[in-house]
Simulated scan of single mutants.
Amino acid sequence: MDDEVSEISGFEPELGGALRQNAVYVDETVCIGCGHCAYVARCTFCLEPDYGRARVIAQDGDTEEIIQEAIATCPVDCIAWVNYTELSVLEAARQYQIIGNLGVVGDKTSLMAKKHKF
């Protein structure tokens, strides 16, 4: 029982704590995949490999100050603080979004064939 108590700080948003009342969210339909956020806050953001968009990998990966700096570097303002309770709703809505791939259209074989024709 003592181990369970030591793992709970009382600052968790679920418990009404003030430590992280907000969560960070990336609107992937707006993201251009520049990577600034992932460079600044490496433990919070990454570029998603299938579509090349930024994605949050850990809400508590970096300090709020570093995350805020990463948000400020976004050229298209697709990252925002949202209420922690809204995060699951936004993430559930993501499954219905159509997100285009920012990478090369087609496979690498056709790209290499075009490259060698010149």
Rank of each mutant, 00 (worst) to 15 (best):
C78N: 07
I71S: 00
Q95T: 12
W81N: 05
N101P: 04
I98P: 00
D62E: 15
I66M: 14
I79C: 04
D60Y: 13
V105K: 09
Y84M: 06
A92S: 14
A72G: 10
V105R: 07
D60M: 09
N101E: 14
N83D: 15
N83K: 11
I71V: 10
D60Q: 11
P75F: 05
S88G: 05
I67P: 03
I98W: 12
A93C: 09
V76D: 03
D77A: 04
A70M: 03
L90Q: 01
D62M: 09
D77Y: 05
E91D: 11
G106K: 00
A54N: 08
A72L: 11
V56M: 01
A58K: 14
G103P: 02
G100A: 06
R55N: 11
V89H: 11
C78M: 13
Q97N: 12
V104Q: 01
I57T: 15
Q97M: 11
C74L: 02
R53C: 04
I67H: 01
T63F: 07
V82F: 06
I67D: 00
G103E: 08
S88P: 01
L102Y: 02
E91W: 11
I99P: 05
L87R: 07
G103S: 10
A70W: 02
V82P: 04
G100W: 01
E91H: 12
Q97I: 02
A70N: 01
I79E: 00
T85D: 13
D77I: 00
L90G: 01
I66H: 05
E86I: 01
E86V: 01
R55S: 14
E86L: 05
A72I: 07
R53T: 07
G61R: 08
G100D: 11
